[in-house]
Amino acid sequence: MEETPSLIFITGGVRSGKSSFAEKTAIQLAKKSGAHLHYIATGVPSDREMRKRIQNHQQQRQESIIQWQTWEEPREISKYSQHFSEKSIILLDCLTTLLNNHLFSTESESIPDTVEKAIINEIDSLKDICQTLVIVSNEVLNESVQDNALVYTYKKLLGKLHQQLVQQTDQAYLVESGIPILMKGAKE
């Protein structure tokens, strides 16, 4: 029997189609196993543009025939764990926003090592509870590293998180212009 992946990592550039691919992947898995779909939205509607982006994503999920349960949580992604089970497929979109919310929020601890551990721990605990956790992130590390200390910290932390996730994950995809490239693992 095929193993169901417990973690899938998906990344890509801006507007590469990574979110659509992630949603499609989650839906396919849910159809196969009869699991429920959960969506953890980390985006905070801070301004008009962000509100519009969030609306677009919400509309897309409403239009899909399959029912998504959405949980909005900017930082503490395992907060709603009691609602998840081994019959849950969770889509987390996206890691870069989550890291933003951790690093640039006055309410939270922003020591890099602490943030790194906190995010990895929460991802681990989510992954252990559900059937499959799908994580979406961004490709932002292929430009000259700026001298700005905050940007440097952000990039270093994101790179470390990506490396750990790719190491842990069953499948890793890089999405280029809507085309998913399998970087690690095997397709079902």
Partner: peptide
């Protein structure tokens, strides 16, 4: 010569 490249903090 062997050239190893990739983004920053990618584990090169």
């Amino acid at each position: 010569m062997h050239f190893v490249t990739g983004g920053a903090f990618n584990g090169k």
